[in-house]
Amino acid sequence: MFNNAAKYSQLIKAEALRLGFMACGISKADFLEEEAPRLETWLNNNRHGEMAYMENHFDKRLDPRLLVEGAKSVVSLTLNYFTPAKQLDSEAPKISKYAYGTDYHTVIKEKLKELLAFINDEIGEVSGRCFVDSAPVMDKAWAQKAGLGWRGKNANLISKDAGSFFFLAELIIDLELEYDKPFVADHCGSCTRCIDACPTDAIVAPYTVDGSKCISYLTIELKNEIPAEFKGKMENWMFGCDICQDVCPWNRFATPHQEPAFEPTHELLQLKKTELVDLTDEVFKQVFKGSAVKRTKFSGLKRNIDFLKPI
């Protein structure tokens, strides 16, 4: 069985790279013992703000065998989204790089389905589920266990080879495979650039982010009004935020993605500040069709843009 496990693992990793994933690592589907107290403390300190769903399925977050019956392996994958492209109007409200192209949920889900189909075709009938940032799966913990990187002081997963501008995804399957060694080194050292650069002081301690203060949370997850205390601190971000990644020295190793679906449209990059300030529902639907920005809905994006206006 061990030889088969090694052979199957190599097959899966090769196919993952062929499908366009940047890296693939595999870990044993087991209880995340170290994560349990961390998650409990984070929730007890209300670091999740209004993201009430973070309190749900506590056990499932920590044990993939509760998500997939008979689960043996967690296949962790990364997909690059880095782009040197920028919005042309430097004064226009900003969008996080990850939302420039087609919604990543759609793109990655298709790739995961192809990978699962490949496993069934080449190895045999395997039960499993695909996960892309939309279920109680602790993707950073699994990626680190699979040897794909370490969690930086901004709580993002960082790779020595590629920085941190990548998505995380998982296949949880009932197939025994060869498991990678976890990534145990921490290559942040004494650097505090992400902590120093965060305009809302969301990184409350090294490796701990208060989600309720994060610009990404405020512009996407928060459904109510943005608290007045953040007025003048948003650095012109209307959807997401890249600050803690832009200043991270490891992102000097980020290279442009090769995923056509993530290419930004000219319409999006050419939006002027005036067009965004006077954004209409019609333009919103046209420019952000198929984009992750649709998560905020027109009303949410308009709220964010209005909040950025000087008093």
Rank of each mutant, 00 (worst) to 15 (best):
P136M: 05
A202L: 05
T280A: 01
R151N: 10
H257Q: 12
L175S: 08
S190R: 06
A228W: 07
N45K: 15
S159F: 12
E176G: 11
R303H: 10
T200L: 00
R65A: 01
P136K: 04
A146H: 09
L218P: 08
S291K: 00
S216F: 13
L115F: 07
S164D: 03
I215K: 04
I243P: 09
P256W: 02
K181H: 07
L67D: 10
K285L: 09
E178N: 13
V287R: 00
L112A: 05
D196Q: 13
T106Q: 01
L112D: 08
I215L: 08
D30R: 09
Y179F: 14
A205H: 14
L276W: 06
F167H: 06
K109H: 05
D210H: 13
A146K: 05
L218M: 08
E125V: 09
N236Y: 09
A202T: 10
E35L: 11
C244N: 03
K273T: 11
E50F: 11
K145S: 14
R151S: 08
G240E: 04
E33W: 02
T219E: 02
S190D: 03
A5N: 05
T274P: 03
M22H: 14
F183A: 12
F288L: 11
E50D: 14
M51I: 04
L116G: 00
P256L: 02
T102M: 00
I311K: 10
L112G: 06
N46Y: 07
V209L: 12
A254T: 10
A14Y: 01
A23D: 14
P264I: 01
M54R: 15
I123G: 13
E235Q: 08
E178G: 10
S291Y: 00
N4Q: 15
E267Y: 00
H257K: 08
L112C: 09
L62G: 06
S96P: 09
L67W: 12
P264N: 03
L66H: 08
E170S: 06
P206I: 00
W250M: 04
L112Q: 11
D281N: 05
Q87A: 02
H105S: 15
